[in-house]
Amino acid sequence: MKNSRALVMLTIAVLAGLAAVSFASRWLLQTSSGAVTPVAVASGDISLGQPLNPNLIRMVSWPSASVPPGAFADGKALDGRVLLTSLAPGEPVLESKLAPQGTKGGLSAVIGAGHRAITVRVNDVVGVAGFALPGNYVDVIVNTQEAGKADAQQSISKIVLEKILVLAVAQQVSRDDTAPKVVNAVTLEVTPEQAEKLDLARSVGTLSLVLRNQVDKQTASTEGATKLSLLDMPASAPAPEPVQTVRTHYVARSAPKRNCIGVLSGVTGSVECF
């Protein structure tokens, strides 16, 4: 009984080994027999938004069994196409990394459908000390006078936009360089509604950018920071409404006219009125 079971296990092991050898031999045969496909790759570093031309593309022989989906076997088909992302030397050019046919080069090629690009002026502090780079996400804070407050000292800082993509810093759109750069302008990708909100925010106050984690999608619900909340002071009670005084005018009435006569009784006298 034991010998039969051992024989069965040995047979299974031999068959599994033969199958593995067969697959390995077939793969080696394909690669060694020249089963390759021409694939267009980047000849050097290519920035996003840049139109492709024959000088930026070279053809390489790629194993047919591992050609990436969307690769190009003809470099001429890429002439004039615009990249949506940066490419490193030797990286295959894929259809998913290209803007639609007919797209012109430049920043407009990398703006998402239904979005707009708006540029805001920043400094080394507002621009997160130069760490807000293309491809990063930021929140936008506005500092302005609190609504309904006549006192100019009653200001408020509030996050008005969240998870906004940085398209470019100054005129740079490359996302490969991670070194901080202090610039005077940052271009952000926003929806039309966000563009209106951002334009109003910069007209009524000062803007600041807050760098956030690229994979953080949570929305922060805040009430904004005021001078009272900053100093942890209780809000002042509303002033009581003034009491309206009702003035009543009294008209003086003259006493009714009375007739009086003198009365003499013995040695005493009196006055009687009626």
Rank of each mutant, 00 (worst) to 15 (best):
V183G: 00
L188G: 01
E189N: 02
E189P: 10
V190K: 00
T191W: 05
T191M: 02
P192E: 11
E193T: 05
E193Q: 10
Q194C: 04
D199K: 06
A201C: 09
A201Y: 08
R202Y: 04
S203C: 07
V204D: 03
V204I: 15
T206Q: 15
T206C: 03
L207Y: 13
S208W: 14
S208M: 06
S208A: 15
L209C: 03
L211D: 04
R212T: 02
R212D: 01
R212W: 11
N213P: 07
Q214F: 06
K217H: 14
K217Q: 12
K217A: 12
Q218E: 12
Q218M: 10
S221T: 11
G224V: 02
A225L: 14
A225C: 02
T226A: 09
T226F: 05
T226C: 02
L228D: 14
L228V: 07
S229D: 02
L231F: 13
L231A: 15
D232M: 01
D232I: 03
P234I: 00
A235R: 05
S236I: 09
S236K: 13
P238H: 05
A239W: 01
P240K: 06
E241I: 09
P242G: 04
V243G: 05
Q244H: 05
T245A: 12
T245I: 13
T245D: 03
V246L: 13
R247C: 04
R247H: 07
T248N: 09
T248A: 11
T248Y: 12
H249Q: 11
H249D: 06
Y250F: 14
V251Q: 09
A252G: 05
A252L: 13
R253Y: 01
R253M: 08
R253I: 04
S254R: 10
A255E: 12
K257R: 08
R258S: 12
R258W: 04
